[in-house]
């Protein structure tokens, strides 16, 4: 098996320089097939330019980008790619069904298959009653839904979703989450660009943080990376010696009455910590590991002053 077979996206020192500005400095990224990948960063970090380069809309100044094992400039590979642009716009004189039909045909689907696929998709995104309505009469949320449907019309292997939930109400957001999960189940890869960190936290397997056109950190959200660990303990009879003794396993500890917040070095130390507290005479009521929320992690990586 070729090494690239395991990767949906692989970039190496990808760079885009506009006249006076470096939009993407040095992007090296790998996304495995079948993964739900979150791409995070503050405004102006180079997220959109990176996505546009992967989709062949913007030509890289230097570096390499392979998508599904082929160079991103390859037109044929787009047959296997779906894309929902941020602020989705389309010919607003088309009806919902006509839009899906057009996109399907552009993807090389035949009319017989489309006759079957279009109503199914409209049903899936909750727009079946509006199939004959022109897009100019659609609300932003409805446009987002039809945009999602056009990205999925040809059952692509890799789907780029740029801010898919931005115009949606809670029901719409839930729909997007369900759709993303359904894509994972059928083995597709999803590349999600979103500002809504809570959404990313719920849906993504892997995230990369981009700052000033470079990946500055990445996290596997399925694993519990030790560096981001917190341990919450609620106990009585906590002696100062018992708390001080925790320094052996923890980098920091903070006590507030019965509440003890710890930053352990490794999950492997949890039994030792518990034993230590019990043997020091503490009565334990709660002992709960906490993961650093994505938002806290984002702020930690990007720095406090950078807004989203």
């Amino acid at each position: 098996m070729d090494q690239s077979d395991g990767f949906a996206i692989q970039t190496e020192n990808l760079r885009k320089v506009y006249e006076s500005k470096i939009a993407v400095r040095n992007l090296s990224l790998t996304v495995r097939r079948g993964e739900i990948f979150g791409f995070l960063g503050p405004n102006g970090a180079g997220k959109s330019t990176s996505v546009k380069m992967l989709l062949g809309l913007v030509k890289p100044t230097s570096g390499r980008a392979d998508v599904l094992g082929l160079p991103c400039s390859d037109v044929g590979v787009r047959r296997k790619i779906g894309f929902l642009p941020e602020d989705f716009r389309f010919y607003d004189w088309l009806t919902a069904a006509e839009l899906l039909d057009l996109h399907g045909r552009l993807c090389g689907m035949d009319r017989a298959k489309l006759r079957e696929r279009v109503p199914t998709l409209l049903e899936m995104v909750g727009l079946a009653p509006h199939r004959a309505k022109r897009l100019r009469e659609f609300s932003k949320g409805m446009l987002q839904r039809i945009g999602l449907a056009q990205a999925l019309i040809h059952e692509p292997e890799l789907i780029f979703l740029d801010e898919p939930t931005s115009g949606l109400d809670p029901m719409g957001r839930r729909l997007v989450r369900d759709v993303i999960r359904a894509q994972r189940e059928r083995g597709a890869t999803v590349f999600l660009n979103s500002h809504l960190l809570s959404e990313v936290e719920i849906t993504c397997d892997q995230v990369a943080f981009i700052k000033d056109g470079e990946v500055v950190a990445s996290r596997d959200l399925r694993a519990q990376p030790d560096g981001d660990l917190r341990l919450f303990v609620r106990a009585t009879k906590l002696s100062p010696q018992a708390v001080a003794g925790l320094a052996k396993w923890c980098t920091a500890s903070q006590q507030d009455g019965e509440r003890l917040s710890l930053s352990p070095r490794s999950t492997a130390d949890f039994p030792e910590i518990l034993r230590h507290l019990v043997s020091a005479g503490a009565d334990i009521y709660e002992f709960a590991p906490e993961r650093l929320s994505l938002e806290s992690l984002f702020v930690k990586i990007m720095g406090e002053d950078r807004g989203l």
């Binding site: 062949g56 037109v75 047959r79 642009p85 552009l106 945009g147 056009q150």
Partner: peptide, 14 residues
């Protein structure tokens, strides 16, 4: 300028 082209130019069409 409207971005309408993005959804089209990312299809398998030269």
């Amino acid at each position: 300028s409207s971005g309408t082209i993005h959804a089209i130019a990312t299809k398998p069409i030269r």
